[in-house]
């Protein structure tokens, strides 16, 4: 283990414990870690955005275009690009218009660029979500509700599959079809929820409650799994290889909090 690796280990422990210190109360160590997190996230994001989007899709096409314009190799056309890379100058112009938001005089320029983004993404989401969610989900809900030869509600020996944990069954299909319909009825406010509509809406609420409960349970498990990961990280760095980083930093933080508490108590009495 090199000194550099030990230093990285201490860094992991410090920042992990610093964030967990918020469980005690909002404190300067947590605030420091919080700001470092924000700075690191922004710095990382900038690099990734440049390396994965701006350079390959803006800088390189424009450089290629200019190189071609000034008599450089023409092979770039047709091989890498389906249209002239010069069109990316439009992207550059729109980017500059977005940056004009930083000025007072020209900040209205950014609306042109925003209008283009909004138009493109509204259309992409509109058609994409209609395909992925609306059509696909409705299609998936059109399930057989009556056991017939050839449909999956009958076993190979002709018996009815009443209920199953995995795969289709009579109860599963009925519950999914009625459940989807009931939840949609619950959110349909154009008709007053009276009579059969009230019953369907009430059933929809039950299905929604189970959905929210399941999602909640699943989220808790995901968070606990992350917590276990952090504890394992701390445990790994509590060994002699890392010069007992977890114990030393943990003890230092506890000492700090106790010291602050004692100081505040003393100052309060004075």
């Amino acid at each position: 283990m090199t000194l550099y690796e030990v230093f990285l280990g201490w860094m992991v422990v410090f920042f992990t414990l610093a964030i967990f210190s918020f469980l005690y109360k909002d404190n300067p160590i947590y605030k420091f870690a919080e700001h470092v997190y924000l700075g690191a996230a922004v710095g990382y994001g900038v690099v990734i955005v440049y390396a994965q989007v701006l350079e390959p899709d803006l800088v390189m096409p424009i450089v290629d275009f200019l190189r071609h314009l000034w008599g450089g190799p023409t092979a770039v056309y047709g091989e890498q690009y389906e249209v002239s890379p010069g069109w990316r100058l439009v992207a550059l112009a729109l980017s500059i218009m977005i940056w004009a938001r930083l000025t007072k005089r020209f900040n209205w320029w950014s609306r042109w660029a925003l209008a283009m983004i909004v138009g493109a993404y509204a259309a992409l989401r509109l058609v994409g979500d209609a395909q992925a969610y609306l059509v696909a989900k409705i299609n998936a809900t059109l399930l057989p509700l009556w056991p017939m030869p050839g449909n999956p509600l009958l076993d190979a020996d002709g018996g009815i599959r009443w209920v199953s944990v995995e795969g289709p069954s009579l109860l599963t299909n009925w519950l999914i079809v009625l459940g989807v319909a009931a939840v949609l009825i619950h959110f349909f406010f154009s008709v007053e929820h009276k009579g059969p509509m009230k019953g369907a809406s009430r059933f929809g609420i039950m299905i929604l409650m189970i959905t929210f409960g399941s999602s909640f349970g699943y989220t808790v498990l995901a968070r606990v799994s992350l917590l276990i990961g952090r504890v394992v990280d701390l445990q790994e760095r509590a060994t002699g290889d890392y010069f007992y980083a977890t114990y030393i930093i943990g003890a230092a933080m506890i000492t700090y909090f106790v010291g602050v508490k004692l100081y505040e108590r003393a100052a309060g009495k004075a």
């Binding site: 979500d129 609306l134 599963t172 999914i176 009625l178 949609l184 959110f187 929809g204 299905i207 189970i210």
Partner: peptide, 19 residues
């Protein structure tokens, strides 16, 4: 089963809203 039904209905609603 029930979670799929609920999620599916919510997603259908979301898609209608997005459209």
């Amino acid at each position: 089963v029930p979670n799929t039904a609920g999620q599916r209905a919510i997603l259908i609603g979301v898609a209608l809203g997005i459209i």
